[in-house]
């Protein structure tokens, strides 16, 4: 009983902190501690959000489209790289340093290049998202594949299983929680990556909207779009959690047994 209460409290605390900060912000803005044109109050932001709602949704659809397409290919590429590196030690040695280097390149630096090469449409955005999202999946999945139980693999060997079967029955299922940990990061990267690439050229999308409102110094709209982007990322991460729970039903059973 006491345990239950504690767990409820621990869930409520973050919500209270956020509400408290919003109240502080409202007061700071209301009493013009910081000039209102520079820091709009939360209520101003909500008003701006409601006023521009349909426009924001139009832009959000484009951004999400880019994020999903990029994420799809990025995740696919990440899985392929992880499996290749796991299956072949030579490929691991050859590819791993390269993929680490790709992550040291600042996104914002190559985005304009991609725009020059691939134009103002969706292509450069998708490519940028692929570059940023494949990495967490590749590394997470690779760790997962490597951490598969060696005794279980040996058992499959005794049964005369092929390499493919070992992947199917042991390695892939046992790397799934690592994969999802990577995917959660990738999902957040995908939305941010889409916005960043839109800043640097494009006709539609939340990033484009951001650059426009910035130019007209609409701080309230600026905050509205920032919150929208955060909310979208959180929603997508939540969706990943739900997909993980559905696709790994045995985890739920194991957790239940531990707590009993």
């Amino acid at each position: 009983m006491r345990k239950k209460l504690l767990s409820i409290i621990s869930k409520i605390i973050p919500a209270f902190v956020i509400i408290f900060l919003l109240i502080v912000w409202q007061i700071v803005s209301e009493y013009e501690v910081i000039p209102k044109y520079m820091l709009p109050s939360p209520i101003d932001v909500i008003i701006a959000f409601r006023k521009d709602l349909s426009l924001l949704m139009d832009h959000a659809v484009i951004t999400l489209q880019e994020a999903f397409i990029g994420l799809f290919f990025g995740v696919f590429l990440g899985i392929v790289i992880a499996v290749l590196m796991d299956a072949c030690d030579f490929l691991y040695k050859a590819i791993y340093p390269l993929i680490v280097i790709t992550q040291t390149i600042p996104t914002i630096a190559i985005a304009p290049l991609l725009v020059l090469w691939l134009g103002y449409e969706m292509m450069p955005k998708i490519v940028l998202i692929i570059i940023t999202t494949f990495f967490p999946v590749a590394v997470g999945m690779f760790d997962g594949l490597k951490s598969a139980d060696t005794d279980e693999i040996k058992m499959m060997g005794v049964m005369g299983a092929s390499k493919l079967m070992i992947y199917r029955y042991i390695k892939i299922p046992e790397s799934m929680s690592h994969f999802f940990a990577g995917l959660r990061v990738s999902v957040a990267y995908a939305v941010v990556g889409a916005v960043i690439s839109e800043w640097l050229g494009g006709y539609k999308g939340l990033g484009v909207y951001m650059t426009r409102v910035k130019k007209s110094y609409d701080f309230d709209k600026m905050f509205a779009v920032i919150f929208l982007i955060s909310a979208l990322s959180l929603l997508l991460m939540g969706a990943v959690n739900i997909i993980q729970k559905i696709s790994m039903p045995w985890e739920k059973v194991a957790d239940k047994n531990k707590s009993e």
Binding site: D151, M159, G160, I170
Partner: peptide, 23 residues
């Protein structure tokens, strides 16, 4: 082996049928 090595992600039925899948 001493360790039962039942795969956590498979149902009991699929675990025992595993050698048949492999075959």
């Amino acid at each position: 082996l001493q360790k039962d090595m039942l795969l956590a992600h498979l149902s009991v039925l699929d675990n025992v049928a595993l050698p048949l899948f492999v075959r």
